[in-house]
Design a protein around this nucleic acid. Structure first.
Length: 805
RNA sequence: GCCGGAGUGGCGGAAUUGGUAGACGCAAGGGACUUAAAAUCCCUCGGAGUUUUCCCACUCCGUGCCGGUUCGAUUCCGGCCUCCGGCACCA
């Protein structure tokens, strides 16, 4: 008997799959359209078993769908622009492109060693001019539509990466990539006007029925819609107005002061000259780590409804980035206003009354009945909101308003390894977009990286100096490159026509294949990538380039693989910096790729985080080894006599087909593995007869069920026992016989007052009377019923019989 | 503070619509084989108790805590605790 030689089996089949290009989808899809996609990786180098989860999961789905008769489009590419490549270049002097291509080669071979299949004929690299040309093209389209613009803004500057970051890339005040604290810097930067799409991005979420609820919630909170009113306060001494945004117009009569952000454009005009240094100081002390403080302005504002003069303060707790940068402060009904008013002795007026509401020690921010509010007294908050806004609208002092937390997407990066922004600064014409026919604006390749500081593009004369496309006069190129999230915001469209030279894609084809039917990736992209991609798709829809607005029909977010970190001592996401990575090659050389695949799927529910256990891996290895030995045993048996079927085994088999099919449909691979193990335990135990024909029949079905998860061993076993040479990948998924999948005899549990007291075996769908009769014969039931009266009987067919006493 | 998600044996986890809690795997303990080890195979494995020579049984408790609905709750409802994730002076 040959022992389980996973190494040669796996090499053999990987070679076959690669050479036959089994996942290739040419042009249109004949077997029904299905587009599945794994989030494409950044080629950072070696992959670990944690990364593997994404790809293995996807491959199991892919192979299952293949057996179900679909031939899904399943492409793969590389998100290959970005900082790590550039940092490696500066450190080691190797060009980012070279570093990137080497990593891709390594990772691609890792995919092969895992036995995951992609249509490599559609491979794309975002760092390739044939790809990033279209980033530039989209940018120009957006510029035309006013969706790309340059503005001076207080940007998030990361001193570590020496570039600005998008709001989405700042996590807890530090850089998402390098964890350096982010500073504010006033810079001219390029933005994409994602805020124009806030409402549509919000509405679109309602249509995403097959997205995880938590991702929807994260996006909804990130967009952060608030409904309220803009209200105008006059400053008579200045002859100017201040507009504020509030969600609580019903509290307007309690507004006893205005508070302006220190960055508000009027802030310098309204404070005394001798308080300028104080103002500057205030600008440094923003954020909730600082105590609330402020400067009283030299002017007052007029309350739009009472006509009373109220003070204006510059306050460090008011954000310039949200609303209008100014608020009406209602100390009785907003805790922040309350703290500020208490500190500076500003008047506090209760206007919303409720029992247990405002008591003078802290603000009451709930709803109630209006008081101290003139003609609105006695109204409910909700009604008063409308009534007051209507009144303001009639007076021309305010209007209904909706605000979002979402801010425009800052895409400028002061780094080299990215898509050059196709903009030219002409001495005469100013900002001039590059002409379409001149695209791509090529990233220069001959750059010396060692010891470099700052953006190398700035020092690259051939790149910077150019002629104006308008007047042919002297001009300079923009040296900022694009955020790499631009690259990943549309790559799923490029896979349809990856080699198209005249357009980013062909609309007709894209409309046929998209939206992506199943998108698999990590939860860490819940906001950034998935929001930007949705935004891009909405924009492309408006440009008439695609006929759908949402790019991803179903989203599956898999959990992360964790392990105790040798550095922090805690359970952490597997990563090099935490010193807790497990290399796939370690597992593959010891147990094989099928074992790693099976264990990765068995480790727990795929949408949840899981802890890697080296010991757990052995369980899966032992299982596969037993499967192999069983196959060997069958193939060494003599073919003789007639096929003798074993009813018990057949029933168990068909129950297992049913269970495993249902589990695959729901992506519950962990329980699919458990069911297959359970079946195999049963099979081994009961397959005592030496009837090869029958054992072979059962075993052939069993390995089909196991195939999507452990494909190499199953292909090999299939070849060994099967008469046809056809690969399992091309075979049909087994159907179960509903009659056989049912138990012949079902166990009905007997309860007394809801407590388990016994069980009887009866034929399926037995009538109540029959089950009661049998139950009453049970010794234990008799004991419990002795001397008591049965009040009620509850019978659930094939499940339970409950006597209520 | 706000918004999500979760809490089940020594561990990872199962229980698809309210119907036998602990499937499957790991670890552990015991045994077989072996000079020995590895590998493999067999048995035990939530807690407490009753019965008993053993087997076979049986009873009570048990799914974070307290309460409710129900013949019956890991599952539904109300209140709390803890942990994880996201947002956070967002007016």
């Amino acid at each position: 008997m040959k022992s389980y030689d996973f190494k040669s089996i796996e090499e053999k089949w990987q070679k076959v799959w690669n050479e036959k290009k089994v996942a290739r989808v040419e042009g249109k899809n004949s077997s029904g359209k299905f587009y599945m996609l794994m989030m494409f990786p950044y080629p950072s180098g070696k992959l670990h078993v944690g990364h593997g989860r994404n790809y293995i999961l996807g491959d199991a789905v892919y192979r299952y769908l293949r057996m179900r008769g679909l031939k899904p489009l399943n492409p793969m590419g590389w998100d290959s622009f970005g900082l790590p490549a550039e940092n490696a270049a500066i450190k080691k002097g190797v060009h980012p492109r070279k570093w990137t291509l080497e990593n891709i080669k390594e990772m691609k071979s890792q995919f092969s060693r895992w036995g995951v299949l992609y249509d490599w004929d559609r491979e794309i690299l975002t760092c390739d001019p044939s790809y990033y040309k279209w980033n530039q093209w989209f940018f120009l389209k957006m510029y035309e539509k006013g969706l790309a613009y340059k503005a001076k803004a207080n940007a998030n500057w990361c001193p570590g990466c020496r570039t600005v970051l998008a709001n989405e890339q700042v996590v807890n005040g530090v850089c998402e990539r390098c964890s350096t604290p982010v500073e504010g810097r006033l810079l001219e930067q390029w933005f994409l006007r994602i805020t124009n799409y806030a409402e549509r991005l919000l509405e679109g979420l309602d249509k995403l029925k097959q997205w995880p609820e938590r991702v929807i919630t994260l996006q909804r909170n990130w967009i952060g819609k608030s409904e309220g009113a803009d209200i105008i306060f006059e400053i008579p001494h200045l002859g100017k107005k201040i507009e504020v945004f509030t969600t609580r117009p019903d509290t307007l009569f309690g507004a006893t002061f205005l508070a302006l952000s220190p960055d508000h454009p009027l802030s310098e005009e309204i404070v005394e000259k001798d308080k300028f240094s104080e103002l500057k100081n205030l600008r440094m002390k923003k954020g909730d780590t600082y105590e609330k403080m402020g400067i009283k302005a030299k002017y007052t504002a007029i309350h739009p409804l009472t006509g009373k003069e109220i003070p204006i303060w510059i306050a460090n707790f008011v954000l310039m980035e949200y609303g209008t940068g100014a608020i009406m402060s209602v100390p009785a009904h907003d805790q922040r206003d309350f703290e500020f008013a208490s500190k500076y002795g500003i008047e506090i007026i209760e206007v919303i009354h409720k029992d247990g509401g405002f008591n003078g020690t802290c603000a009451y921010d709930g709803e109630g009945i209006l008081i101290n509010s003139s003609q609105f007294n006695g109204m409910e908050s909700e009604r008063a909101k409308r009534a007051i806004v209507e009144k303001l609208e009639r007076m021309g002092r305010g209007k209904k308003s909706i605000r979002y937390k979402l801010r425009d997407w800052l895409i400028s990066r002061q780094r080299y390894w990215g898509t050059p922004i196709p903009i030219i600064y002409c001495e005469k014409c100013g900002i001039v977009p590059e002409r379409e026919e001149n695209l791509p604006v090529l990233l220069p390749m001959d750059i010396e990286f060692k010891g470099l500081k700052g953006n190398p593009l700035e020092t690259c004369e051939e790149f910077v100096n150019t002629l104006c496309p308008n007047c042919k006069g002297k001009a300079k190129r923009e040296t900022d490159t694009m955020d790499t999230f631009v690259d990943s915001s549309w790559y799923f469209l490029r896979f349809i026509n990856p080699k198209e030279e005249k357009a980013p894609f062909i609309s007709k084809d894209v409309n046929e294949f998209l939206p992506v039917d199943l998108y698999i990736g990590g939860i860490e992209h819940a906001i950034l990538h998935l929001l930007y991609s949705r935004f891009f798709t909405h924009v492309l829809y408006d440009l008439g380039l695609v006929n759908f607005q949402e790019p991803f029909q179903q989203l599956f977010t898999q959990g992360m693989i964790c392990k105790i970190s040798s550095i922090t001592g805690k359970l952490e996401k597997m990563s090099k910096s935490k010193g807790n990575v497990v290399a796939p090659d370690e597992i593959i050389s010891k147990y094989g790729a099928d074992t790693e695949r099976l264990y990765t799927l068995f480790i727990g529910p795929p949408e949840k985080d899981a802890e890697w256990s080296d010991q757990g891996v052995t369980g899966c290895f032992r299982f596969l080894k037993r499967v192999w030995d069983f196959g060997e045993r069958i193939s060494s048996m003599e073919r003789k006599g007639e096929k003798v079927r074993d009813e018990k085994i057949l029933r168990k088999l068909h129950q297992t087909i049913k269970k495993v099919t249902e589990d695959y449909e729901r992506y519950h691979f962990n329980t699919a593995v458990a069911s297959l193990m359970e079946f195999f335990n049963f099979f081994e135990e009961n397959a005592k007869n030496e009837n090869r024909a029958f054992l072979e029949e059962v075993f052939a079905i069993f390995i089909k069920l196991l195939y999507p998860m452990a494909p190499h061993i199953c292909e090999e076993l299939n070849q060994k026992i099967s008469e046809s040479e056809m690969m399992l990948l091309e075979k049909a998924w087994p159907c179960y016989d509903p009659q056989l999948a049912k138990e012949e005899m079902v166990v009905v549990v007997i309860q007394i007052n809801g407590k388990l007291r016994g069980q009887v075996k009866v034929p399926e769908n037995s009538p109540e009377d029959y089950v009661v009769e049998l139950a009453l014969k049970e010794e234990n039931i008799k004991n419990h019923l002795a001397g008591k009266e049965i009040k009620k009987k509850i019978y659930v067919k094939n499940k339970i019989l409950n006597f209520v006493l």
